[in-house]
């Protein structure tokens, strides 16, 4: 028996909106510690890892570990039917082939339940080690989204370079080139507007902008985004999900052929 009640149901709506264009089908893993997901995009170039810790739910019952295979587009369609301030409850029986989403309005005058069929999904679970990164950039998520959107009108790839001067986003395309430099800015009065760079050593990596733009669908979840870089390793683009967890996108770098 699984029963997860999330007062901030709007968070789950935002999570699905940030996942559904990148991943078609995925297994949500439910355990005593939380509700999580790991899935690759259809090209197997990007990976997304979601964790919503059990403590973040108002009520969290998970009698035994359960894996719920869901089509994320269909799940997003159902969650779109919830209002942003609705309380969302996810329910599933151990042997059931369906999951129920229950939406309650804050004053309890409207209660809806949507039942969705589950799927058998054969997915490869990758082991992601804890890594030391050469550079970690924390910046406003809206600024990062704006940069990725702007650069993708010029070119297909972005070179992210971190030096002690700041972080530089560069692209080139048929019409020309573009460089955007963001300097460190502690912004003590408004921490959500800060740009903080922790650098062990300079690093420069190339990534496909199409995926970066897809990751920025998570922008409504958090004011800040964290971009972690190391030479020849996937970049990690992380958005915090309130106090309860995170959504992390991993993207393999482009390499010289």
């Amino acid at each position: 028996m699984l029963e997860l009640r999330l007062v901030q149901g709007g968070l789950l709506k935002k999570v699905l909106e940030s996942l559904k264009d990148l991943v078609n089908d995925a297994n949500f893993d439910c355990s005593a510690s939380g509700f999580s997901l790991q899935a690759m995009d259809s090209s197997h170039v990007a990976l997304v890892a979601l964790l919503l810790r059990s403590e973040g739910f108002e009520h969290y019952r998970c009698d035994r570990n359960l894996s719920l295979g869901m089509n994320l587009n269909n799940m997003a369609k159902m969650l779109k039917c919830a209002a942003n301030d609705d309380i969302v409850t996810i329910k599933a029986d151990d042997a059931s082939d369906s999951v129920t989403f229950m939406f309650e309005s804050p004053n309890q005058d409207k209660i809806a339940d949507f039942e969705m069929k589950l799927m058998d999904i054969d997915s490869e679970h990758l082991g992601i080690p804890e890594a030391e990164f050469q550079a970690i950039v924390r910046m406003p998520s809206a600024e990062f989204a704006r940069i990725c959107k702007d650069l993708s009108t010029i070119g297909d790839t972005v070179v992210i370079s971190v030096t002690k001067e700041g972080v530089k986003f560069s692209t080139r395309g048929d019409i020309g080139t573009a460089n955007i430099v963001c300097r460190q800015n502690p912004s003590i009065d408004k921490p959500e507007e800060a740009t903080i760079i922790e650098m062990e050593e300079p690093v420069s990596l190339t990534f496909a902008l199409r995926y970066m733009n897809s990751f920025t669908k998570a922008t409504p979840l958090a004011n800040q985004v964290t971009i972690s870089l190391s030479a020849d390793l996937p970049v990690v683009v992380e958005y915090r999900v309130a106090e309860m967890g995170y959504i992390r996108f991993y993207l393999a770098p482009k390499i010289e052929e």
Partner: peptide, 14 residues
């Protein structure tokens, strides 16, 4: 030209 690497190359055996 630059080619895209698959993500599993980095994490499959870790």
């Amino acid at each position: 030209l630059k080619s895209q690497t698959r993500i599993a190359r980095f994490y499959r055996f870790s």
